[in-house]
Design a protein around this nucleic acid. Sequence first.
DNA 1: GGTCACCATTTGAGCGTTCAAAAAGTCTGT
DNA 2: ACAGACTTTTTGAACGCTCAAATGGTGACC
Lengths: 352, 352
Amino acid sequence: MGEGGSQPATLADVARASGVSRQTVSNVINAPHRVRPQTRARVQEAIAALGYEPNRLAQALQAQASRLIGYRIDPMQPDSLGTIHDRFIHALAEAVQAADHQLLVFAATDQEDELRTYERLYRTGAVDGFVLYGIDHHDPRPAALVGFGAPAVAFGRTDEPTEQSWVDIDNAAGTAAAVDHLVARGHRRIGFLGWPEGSGTGDRRAAGWYQAMRRHGLLPGSADLDLRGQDSILNGAQLGLALLDRPQPPTAIVTVSDTLAVGVLQAARGRGLTVGRDLAVVGFDDTPAARVLELSSVSQPIESAAVAIVRCLLPRLPAGRGAEPGTEETPGRLLAPHLVVRASSAWSPVPG
Amino acid sequence: MGEGGSQPATLADVARASGVSRQTVSNVINAPHRVRPQTRARVQEAIAALGYEPNRLAQALQAQASRLIGYRIDPMQPDSLGTIHDRFIHALAEAVQAADHQLLVFAATDQEDELRTYERLYRTGAVDGFVLYGIDHHDPRPAALVGFGAPAVAFGRTDEPTEQSWVDIDNAAGTAAAVDHLVARGHRRIGFLGWPEGSGTGDRRAAGWYQAMRRHGLLPGSADLDLRGQDSILNGAQLGLALLDRPQPPTAIVTVSDTLAVGVLQAARGRGLTVGRDLAVVGFDDTPAARVLELSSVSQPIESAAVAIVRCLLPRLPAGRGAEPGTEETPGRLLAPHLVVRASSAWSPVPG
DNA sequence: GGTCACCATTTGAGCGTTCAAAAAGTCTGT
DNA sequence: ACAGACTTTTTGAACGCTCAAATGGTGACC
């Protein structure tokens, strides 16, 4: 086990110590069945004695596979509350490590720089592929990666109809679950605060509200309770006030994000309403802020998403072992979120 | 520029295309002055035509330097608000890239796993060194890394008195600045909410409050306004109420973290006080939550910290160019934070 | 014109690993 | 005892790059 601060042992060192050739040592590690048990034992002893571990750089060069996955972290946008981005990175790192790869994380100043970096990292062999975060339709990044042949899987759906190129949350199901929950509590007038049309993700969350409302026979009656705006607390407060000042105000509000929901909490307070008693609010993303503020929120199964992404990516990587035939099941590309109910939506408008 | 989806060009390809040997191409890139201008031009033309970029794996193997820095991301603790951890990773990635390195980010399940991973990554040549986050005295990690000779720099001070092994924020100066600011606004009774004794960082922040209070002649008069508890919003609220219910309550409260500060905001609301009008509050870390809640907070210069860390690490890395003699200035190990004043502490208790 | 110094370029080797093929060893059956 | 069919082990080459040393060209100087 020992070993001072000296240079790490190499295959040749182990070979010399156990009186065999380098290749035999290599075989002991990579194809033990080819080596006579007696020799194998002797070599393994030497491996343990020298604390040998194969040099990853040399393996990478020979295999033409760095076993690194590239991932761009974007600077967080200053307006919104803490995101679930950090949860995603952590989950991704874990998933990638489970597949004997590692995560190479880099920063880019803008999108042009990002694209250049993707290409450089890939062409210099620094990474074998990429994971993309926050991708939506019409994003140029997936196409650019396909352009120079880099394997990539996006979190968020891309334009490519083909193969396994993305994994996404079933956003519509999330808002629909929020509506179902509120209806079950007895709410009939349920508002929605969303993002401006055009963001696929926001549109799908809006569609979930719309479909669930229609399913419960609450449309077109509540059609005027659907407002949109940029993702900021201030906007959430303003739009929230607009809803609360309606002649027939909603008893519950579903939002497209926790950020907007926090704004609604402020608006309610501004109108003298106690959330959870006079008004129900449900956010989206289950950020730390939601936990802290006792805000019900739609939680994305982001750990499962990371695992699914890696499962999609792996077979397309040079070092991707062909995935044992038994475990061949197509990974779900659309993952179901689940609603976390907290005090902000515990209230029922009708007695009983 | 072109190039389809074919294999990237190698040094040999460029050499063939421009009619010289591999080494000459290598020299054009790494030591251009050794090559006759005419030849150089021809080779550079071929490089551009083939879109050649040196293979990083091959360089790494030859140089025995991966030019990767290892960094463990820990799962965020569920209780506190969003941290500044994500800001740090981003800043670190940028700083590392500026030095022609990259960041390898990994997850570990516990500390034992973390230490094992450090050693494995280092001994397999996967990384050249490490950056440690959230280190305090008596943390076993720095010593473990020294144990197998891996270069590492910590954010937060280590036990080693030697060399450049850490960079830290001047925590005491942060809380002191908060006190100074409040005193300048006319406050005389300024409370402090800290962490339990034993965390070096928390102790230093407490010391900053204590020293500044003494300097302004407010001690021992206000000595009973110093309370401690674990970092959670609930604790902040409870300790905040304890302070506000004193016979002579404070007019301002400095906290060791934004998390506790948010608790104080809740406590104030619970007692019918409006923060910024009846009570001043200052947090620590300048998290997104502070921005959103208009909470004054001590902001850590985390981008500068990342740069300083890389500057400490670089000369100890195998690929670390010896740092041009001109820029030899010792990087500051203790960085000054600055106070961001917002509505929560805009109030003055005395007229004028 | 030959020796020397100097610049430009090439050759050979090696970083640590694995693949492919060759060589050596072991067993069986006749 | 020897061919054939194994199994086990070794050799040589390669991945793409850079270091160290060798080679080829130029001109200057006596």
